[in-house]
Nucleic acid binder design. Structure first.
Length: 465
RNA sequence: GGCCCCAUCGUCUAGAGGUCUAGGACUCCGGGUUCUCAGUCCGGCAACAGGGGUUCGAAUCCCCUUGGGGCUGCCA
């Protein structure tokens, strides 16, 4: 059987680094085995799901290079791929469950359940469903329904000793006692299935072979296994990857380090950098070159080498991957992007893509993002605002340079050095202020190169005296 | 509260009983190179949470404690 994995986000927010890493691992595992990567939209939370989030998630996945073989927009053999469009299927399966007596209607209202939970907690009891609707008679049910109550449907968790056990690809054996699991709702009173149920049904019919997801689902898996068993379905393999924690060591939240992929893109990170960074959280690998190529990454990917402890999101390390990715990028490509950005930004373009590509090797110095790269090059597009005192030799230098006809970096450098020596200045005493007047910056590519690129006229006008 | 998961430098991690005076990467620090900064190259600081076992021998196995996380939802 060929490998099929899925990424099943709920469209209740943007794709953030945690979800992106889950998607990445699923993609890698499918591709490693020449299998299929399925995108499934889990929009069963009607209150919080929105089409806008679905769109942004898809856009961000594509940006990361994680294209899906089956899913919304691209179709596939298991249509539809949005849970809200699969409602009749869940109803059908629920019917089976009813017939085999694996579920029962629960007439408790959310308010009653909440009160019950509070009560249990205050008495130091585990907050679990009491099972009070489990043994209702037909007569009881009729009475409750006459009151206008619409039931939800709960799964009858076997009341027995022992534990529900399964093998997890990263955690090894995981087990939970039956007595720890309360009867859980599979179908809400409004006819919408819960995640626990819908995911099981979909994973079965979509023939998912490996469920790779965050380890917050570890306890849930036992419930889902119960469902698989009740339906006589073969469950997939499970791999629960540790969830990324914030700098403070807490679960990622909007307030704490839950960076959205959208945000990283807008800040100018390259997708391969984000991917490589995400991959190395929990995945220990030797070498790093292959991390920039998705297919190479897939070849080397191993579920068994994923570590069990939660990594902490670290911007410093993301930045390092960012600069590595830029360094490896084709110069022409980089130049193209920069030129495009400047023209879109309405900046005067004083340089051709080819010229820029030649300049780039000297200009690259640890910028983590394209935005930073552009920033570091802004002397190309703006005359600097210099507030420093004009050195006394500036007027002479200007005159000297005006006489230089052969305007290339070698000649410029000769001129500059001769001038500096004649003045009796140390190199830094001369070049440093000159750089500031030419670029407004205290660092950058070699000055003669900058001067050649900017052109004689531009340089003369920047050397205010 | 109950149950479960996790635990090596500040961070990501290697390590599957002796090869560990614990290796690599990021950050940081020092030095070389450079007109400057960055980069780059070289070097350096820095960890097995604590306590008990098991064993000739433990970062590696077991137990307890501590710490962190998750689940315990008509969220996913």
């Amino acid at each position: 059987m060929s490998v099929r994995t899925r990424f099943a986000p709920s469209p209740t927010g943007n794709l953030h680094i945690g979800g992106a890493r889950t998607a990445l691992f699923n993609w890698l595992w499918a591709k490693k085995w020449n299998g299929k990567f399925v995108l499934r939209i889990e929009d069963t939370d009607r209150d919080r799901s929105s089409p806008e989030f679905e769109e942004s998630i898809k856009r961000d996945l594509k940006w990361l290079g994680l294209e899906w073989d089956e899913g919304p927009d691209v179709g596939g053999a298991h249509l539809p791929y949005r849970q809200s469009e699969r409602l009749s299927l869940y109803l059908e399966i629920l019917k089976k469950l009813k017939e085999t007596d694996y579920v029962y209607p629960c007439y408790c209202t959310p308010e009653e359940l909440e009160a019950e939970r509070k009560e249990q907690l205050s008495r130091g009891m585990p907050p679990r469903y009491s099972g009070k609707c489990r043994n209702l008679t037909e007569e009881d049910r009729k009475i409750l329904e006459r009151e206008g109550r619409v039931p939800s449907w709960r799964f009858k968790v076997p009341q027995r000793d022992g534990r529900i056990e399964f093998h997890d690809e990263v955690h090894g054996t995981y087990a939970l006692s039956y007595s720890e699991v309360g009867d859980f709702i599979v179908m809400r009173s409004d006819g919408i299935p819960t995640y626990l149920f819908a995911a099981v049904v979909d994973d079965h019919f979509m023939e998912i072979t490996h469920v790779i997801r965050g380890d917050e689902h570890l306890p849930n898996t036992t419930r889902q296994l119960l469902l698989f068993k009740a339906l006589s379905w073969q469950p997939p393999s499970f791999a629960h990857i540790p969830m990324i924690l914030s700098r403070e060591g807490r679960k990622l939240s909007k307030r704490e380090g839950a960076e959205s992929i959208d945000d990283l893109r807008q800040r100018g990170y390259l997708p391969e950098a984000v991917r490589a960074y995400l991959a190395t959280l929990s995945w220990a690998v030797e070498g790093e070159d292959f991390l920039f190529d998705l297919n190479e990454m897939a070849k080397r990917f191993e579920l068994s080498s994923i570590s069990r402890s939660s990594p902490i999101h670290d911007e410093e390390r993301l930045r390092w991957w960012g600069s590595e990715a830029i360094k490896r990028k084709d110069l022409k490509w980089l130049a193209d992007v920069i030129v495009k950005m400047t023209s879109e930004g309405g900046l005067p373009v004083r340089i051709t893509t080819e010229e820029l590509a030649m300049l780039l090797p000297e200009a690259l110095s640890g910028q983590a993002t394209i935005v930073e790269l552009l920033e570091s090059l802004n002397w190309l597009f703006h005359r600097p605002q210099v507030h420093e005192a004009v050195p006394p030799w500036m007027r002479d230098l200007k005159a000297e340079l005006s006489k230089l006809d052969d305007w290339n970096k070698a000649k410029i450098e000769d001129k500059l050095r001769a001038f500096q020596k004649r003045l009796g200045l140390k190199a830094r005493e001369f070049f440093h202020p000159l750089r500031i007047f030419v670029t407004g910056r205290i660092s950058g590519p070699p000055l003669p190169l900058i001067m050649e690129v900017l052109g004689k006229e531009e340089i003369i006008s920047r050397l205010v005296d």
